[in-house]
Design a binder for these strands. Structure first.
Lengths: 230, 230
DNA sequence: TGGAGGATACCGAACGGTCTGTTTTCTGCA
DNA sequence: TGCAGAAAACAGACCGTTCGGTATCCTCCA
């Protein structure tokens, strides 16, 4: 009783300055839908989808169970909504991070792994939600694998465009190789919790750009202490 | 009734020519323990650990629930036994695959990604059990992350040894970069079910060996059709 | 004949999901 | 502007199922 009253008060006071119009971004959406979406995103990513119960989600969101089922219909639909929303936000962030600041295509590509490093350094970094979703479901079914591939194709397409602009001999090959390094870094960072793997991946990426173009970025991997952690 | 009778008969007739001594490899162990271990391995890897119930395991193993709990004590202990056994088997296979056939260190390293490709091509390839286990559990707890890191460190140590023998300028760096490519390829193969990602990773590895040493292996990635699939 | 393994009933807890009923918040009209 | 009614969100009991795990009894064969 007192606890829910407190929550209620907090919600009201902070929701006051928001209009009733449905916010499109889930990041700071104070509506029930937004709170459910971000609570589910957090718990699914942190603890896994199967290990997260409905009750845990509604507790963190501060909503009733009826609200969840009215808005999303089922846990399965909620999972899909979370992946869609999270994927969109991540791609916007990622592309923004490498495009912002301008420069030529090679400069933009060189921003990939520093951007990933800052992601890996977040307190709430739990790996790639798409990879994790595939990992904990039936791998003979296409459901989650298709969703993950759709996400990865969008990212790959952007990288390939930059690789083409850069004048790479084989942009498609380079883009796929960078994508492999990105996935490898994400997984290694999830397991080791060492954001430094991004530096290692970035260094490897330099080698891929071609011998002529290697301008080593201050050799960030000069600290061997970090290397042992993976 | 008839179904379990059939199982019983099959089990007996094939178990006849095995001694009662506990087999060390789980691969073709017909004992109750071996059958439970390989059934649990299959289901954990295919469907995920949390999504696999005890009943599904004992059904596939053809044992009683009591037997499982007598031999392993709990589902948690079974999970650990599976990871330990599977990790050991995988490392023996992997190191065997790149060492067998001899040659110098560089030749051995160049066998990494062809070996992975044959793994990816197996019907029952479901990704790396350690990565998957981390992905579906609480990422703020160290339990599974430590187990995964222990496994990966053994593999990394072997690669680093070969990189040193090869005369690489920075064997430690090269080994970590190869490890990133390996993880990236495993994840990409799990999501896309396209073993061809191993060729792409192998090509990237050649770039890492240093410009002077690149002897492109017949350019396996000349089939662009495969590239689109990731 | 004794011990390993099989079958099965059962337990409490937690699961996803539904239902009833109350309170809060928005909206439209006098 | 104020108030009635609609709509939304809340609280939480409840349902059937499945979960991990236990207990009991039975079968088989060395």
């Amino acid at each position: 009783m007192p606890r829910s009253d407190l929550l209620q008060v907090m919600r009201k006071s902070s929701a006051k300055r928001k209009s009733a119009a449905a916010a499109s971004r889930a990041g700071d959406d104070e509506s029930a839908r937004g709170r459910l979406l971000s609570a589910a995103t957090h718990l699914f990513c942190k603890d896994g989808i199967n290990a997260t119960g409905i009750d845990a989600i509604i507790n963190e969101a501060g909503t009733a169970k009826t609200t969840l089922y009215k808005l999303f219909g089922s846990k399965t639909h909620l999972v899909h909504a979370v992946l869609e929303s999270e994927g969109k936000q991540w791609r916007e962030w990622f592309i923004g991070a490498i495009e912002a600041g301008g420069g030529d295509a090679e400069k933009k590509l060189s921003r990939i792994f520093p951007a990933l490093k800052s992601w890996f350094s977040e307190e709430r970094f739990y790996g790639c939600p798409f990879i994790n979703a595939v990992a904990e479901h039936d791998k003979d079914q296409k459901q989650f694998r298709n969703i993950a591939m759709k996400h990865k194709k969008v990212v790959l397409a952007h990288i390939e465009k930059l690789a083409t602009e850069m004048g790479a001999a084989e942009p498609e090959v380079l883009a796929h190789q960078l994508a492999l390094l990105i996935d490898g870094a994400i997984v290694a960072a999830m397991v080791s919790r060492n954001p430094g793997v991004a530096d290692m991946a970035g260094l490897a990426a330099c080698s891929l750009f071609g011998p002529a173009k290697v301008k080593k970025p201050k050799r960030a991997a000069s600290a061997p202490a970090e290397l042992v952690a993976v």
